[in-house]
Design a protein around this nucleic acid. Structure first.
Lengths: 245, 245
DNA sequence: AATCAGAATATTGTTCACAATTTTGATCGA
DNA sequence: TCGATCAAAATTGTGAACAATATTCTGATT
């Protein structure tokens, strides 16, 4: 069990103080973010029930705002709502995971195309810097650092697209997939690593030349390869994790 | 793994008669759909407030489920929630509209690519049939029929992608844009019409050859042209719609 | 007459309470 | 001993009441 957040902390933080504009994030969004993080971080087992009362105490709120947040998370695809049976964290089949990766690929392909239209030289320089940093992690076989910088690079490309709707949708899908990634690292895919590094070379190259269509294509295929690795990993993990009756 | 038969909701829904079986879609989803349609159809002015009490009476429900639905619609981007000031239907600037069209373009580009991997000959034949039907409307200058079939074709391509996550996201963005389209038809863009028709020829061609990357590119650019027309229309409409006095 | 201050009104955000359905537990029977 | 049926408990879905904030209306003052 984790230490509970004091109940009156949230309400006081909102209502009290001479400058209430500080907490304009509106209690609702606060709850939403915290609940989402709680689920994404894997505190609730896959396919497990989401106990309303327990979460109410943990977040220090009543059921109504919590249920509102759950409805939103359901529309985001993180949980599923069964009639009269409450919310369960949605467990992804390998088919679902493949679908999500493909959509991510489509979104990144779009991001790459738009980025070529809008990106500044400074931003490209920053991505170049990150690229070489990532290359350093690759050489040192630092998987953790590699993944971290890798994420940042992809994020930077999406941000360079200058499209808030795209950014929000991308964040949504990234969150759904992150839940899987949390439960296991992809460390076994060593052979894929060098290939991914080479793909990133071509990504950077296309970005430098601002070749939108080309970059779009590369990014989708890059994600498609990621998808293959991820799905293979998930199935392997499923077999290993299956409990003998 | 899944020993649970969903529930008797499915069977009841099948035998839905005049009785209360209709309610099985879970009241929440029912409300959500009706409220979304109500807004998309433009029954509430752009940027106007969403009176909770009035809608409660209209839908015959209490405030709690209505507010849950509003939160979801906010996460979908159809309305925006101002703290202590309720929900307003989100009015789209031309910048917002351009962003949405670009994302639609990215989604359709993805759909085209995936469709080339998965589409059956029968589906292609169906789209061909629709294409020629649309061409007929074009020849007869039947704008309404043209747009209707046009929508169906794009929808068919997305469905042929065999990706439910993509389908759901596409539906979301289509809904947001449809609100604009409802408020005005694009009839003035006659010169764009022939160009669009030609683009559709190339779309069908690439689909026949199952040329994924190519179709992806064409579809994005097709949507980009649509975007230009739509934004120009919106600005023109804004000027014309401004009430003197 | 116009503007600003203050009170009355309306609307929103939240908590609480109740009805309905599901899940669990126990008793009975084979 | 295992299974089934029925009852008790817990949990969910909905509605209504309550406090807090915003909006509007009135009236006074410059």
């Amino acid at each position: 069990m984790k230490p509970l957040i004091p109940n009156d902390a949230a309400s006081k933080a909102l209502g009290a103080g001479p400058g209430p504009d500080r907490e304009d994030l509106s209690l609702h969004d606060e709850i939403l973010t915290r609940l989402r993080d709680h689920i994404v971080e894997g505190n609730i087992p896959d396919g497990g029930r989401v106990p309303e009362r327990q979460l109410c105490e943990m977040l220090g709120i009543s059921r109504t705002p919590l249920r509102e947040a759950l409805k939103v998370l359901a529309s985001e695809g993180l949980v599923e709502l069964l009639p009269n049976r409450g919310a369960r964290v949605r467990q992804l089949s390998e088919h679902d995971l493949a679908e999500l990766f493909d959509v991510m690929g489509g979104l990144e392909a779009l991001a790459g195309r738009l980025a070529c239209e809008n990106i500044t030289d400074a931003e490209i320089a920053e991505i170049e810097r990150l690229h070489y940093e990532m290359y350093g992690f690759y050489l040192h076989r630092d998987m953790h650092g590699y993944f971290r910088v890798n994420q940042i690079i992809h994020q930077k490309i999406v941000e360079a697209a200058r499209n808030s709707a795209l950014l929000a949708t991308y964040a949504n899908f990234a969150g759904r997939i992150r839940r899987i990634r949390y439960s296991a690292n992809f460390a076994r895919k060593r052979e894929r690593w060098g290939e991914a590094m080479r793909e990133h070379e071509t990504i950077l190259d296309a970005l430098r030349r601002r070749a939108g269509s080309e970059l779009s294509d590369i990014l989708f295929k890059h994600l498609r390869n990621k998808r293959t690795a991820a799905v293979e990993h998930l199935t392997a993990d499923d077999k290993a994790g299956s409990v003998p009756t």
